[in-house]
Design a protein around this nucleic acid. Structure first.
Lengths: 210, 210
DNA sequence: ACCTGAACACCGTTCAAGT
DNA sequence: ACCTGAACACCGTTCAAGT
């Protein structure tokens, strides 16, 4: 047994991270694996399938530190017992906890995508747009409802893609451009993180207002 | 003068709409134009540039019916005069008008992208991710602030992409699949529109709560 | 200015054949 | 089960040369 399916996925992720999505061809993955291109098709139906497996790998392990059931379980701060008094609401403190858990989940997802070159593109195209594909979507749905989950996910994907596009442009500019305005290069990374958080705030405020 | 730059863009949009983005190659655009592939490079630097021009064309004419300056001008319902009494707020009615104008702009943008096959993909990758590219972003920024504009745009792009992906899958299923559950096919289109509006509501509620 | 013809360095995928 | 070798039908882009 020379190579397994997960060997192929690992090699593909290595190529992705070093060469970028546009150079992540089946032929280069094969070369990375020391094998003929046709050999890949023994492990994977086609390139699209390989990209989906890569996306799964990128988001695997997301939200490990985030409580699973804030509203209903015994996990977070203002847990289970608040039910009877508050009527139709599931408990105000519990709802706040759910939104905070959703916030952490989105931050975690974003971080995982940004950790590998063009990761946001791969994840967004491979898993965002077939409904209910990811466990993250399910967990978000349980926390803030399906509409909220969808809104948060699309925002998170979009902002991560935008972040990676800007970072690549900045890298390119640093290589080709002049001496480089130091303030511009330094401020950019944190600015993008802050920008992401502000958008997250807007959506979470909207969910609170429902 | 055989062909102009905008002839190339038009031909490319025809190919896009009939064959889809994955088949919209320089060579097919050339064929559509009755010309050799190399001739295109007299009008357009490279494929990426052509895609950007196509994106501009797709979103051109958006928001024609939406008032330009709700908060500051004389356009919409509760115009200019409310300022003095309400202090730091620019007038509650004016803010509501701005958010409603933003809602119309986003709906308009979505509609324009959905009007051509894979239009959302083209617009999102070509113009969403270099900041301040579109006039739509500028207009949204004037209405609800930069963070709100970015959040609304990313959501609108993402949802439109998702919508087109699902529609294509449904089409494909209708061709290859069985007799076709009539309720499934009929309900899908309106469901996606309603889903978009609900997400929009969440974000606009969040902006109102700021 | 606009286009042709030919070439270069790539793609994804299939398929018989090997071990 | 896993892989090779060869082929098929494509790509984007460049460049000399034509009119």
């Amino acid at each position: 047994m020379r190579n397994s399916r997960s060997d192929v996925v690992s090699a593909a992720l290595r190529v992705l991270d070093t060469q970028g999505l546009e150079n992540c061809s089946m032929r280069r993955v094969a070369t990375e694996l020391g094998v003929q291109p046709s050999a890949l098709y023994h492990h994977v139906r086609d390139k699209q399938t390989l990209l989906a497996l890569m996306a799964d790998e990128i988001v695997s392990g997301i939200g490990a530190g985030v409580a699973l059931d804030v509203g209903t379980g015994a996990g977070a701060g203002a847990g289970t017992g608040t039910g009877a008094g508050t009527g139709t609401e599931a408990g105000a403190a519990g709802e706040t906890g759910a939104r905070e858990a959703a916030r952490l989940l989105c931050r975690d997802l974003r971080e995982a995508m940004l950790a590998v070159r063009d990761g946001a593109d791969v994840v967004a195209t491979a898993s965002a747009f077939r409904l209910g594909a990811s466990s993250v979507e399910t967990r978000l749905g349980a926390l803030v409802g399906d509409d909220g989950a969808r809104t948060l996910l699309l925002y998170t994907f979009g902002h991560a893609q935008s972040t990676q596009t800007h970072r690549q442009a900045a890298e390119f500019g640093a290589l080709t451009g002049g001496a480089g305005d130091p303030a511009e290069g330094a401020g950019a990374a944190g600015d993008l993180d802050a920008s992401f958080d502000r958008g997250l705030d807007i959506i979470l405020a909207g969910l609170a207002a429902s």
